[in-house]
């Protein structure tokens, strides 16, 4: 399976989905007007990648800003990973990076923990 790489610029986040290492990185800003459309190939890639059970996957979110539509898309990604962990023997690590004084970004990470019941590491930088 090929990697998926999207170069970030302005309102588009940098996306690096590595099929060999199982490391999925999201960073930068995300506020595309057509957010759902933008995330479609990402959902398709993850869905394909999760077809084989028992993989070890690390997801790193290093977002500086994302809009509410992107927030829904991140929730969907986390739900896909949660289902994979619960039903397909996946070992999932999620790291949520936030600027140390950015309480809103910290709270967002906490809210994803509450909402998904996933064990998400909240990591200040």
């Amino acid at each position: 399976m090929e990697d998926l790489f999207i170069e970030g610029k302005g309102f588009i986040p940098k996306v690096e989905l590595n099929a060999q290492t199982g490391v999925l990185n999201f960073s930068g800003q995300s506020y595309h007007e057509y957010t759902d459309e933008f995330f479609d190939p990402i959902f398709a890639w993850i869905s394909q990648y999760l077809k084989e059970p028992g993989k070890k996957i690390t997801v790193n979110f290093r977002m500086t800003y994302f809009n509410t539509a992107s927030s829904k898309c991140f929730l969907e990604i986390l739900e896909m990973l949660k289902a994979y962990q619960n039903n397909c023997g996946g070992q999932i690590t999620v790291n949520w990076y936030y600027q140390a004084n950015d309480y809103d970004m910290l709270e967002t990470g906490e809210d994803f923990i509450i909402d998904t019941q996933l064990n998400i590491n909240l990591i200040p930088y």
């Binding site: 759902d36 509410t68 829904k72 709270e107 509450i114």
Partner: peptide, 23 residues
Amino acid sequence: LREYYNMERRQSLITKRKGGNVG
């Protein structure tokens, strides 16, 4: 507001509405 946001965002995911609907 945090609770309401999470509830509405999940509803938006379930119903597959465009956007987050929590602006």
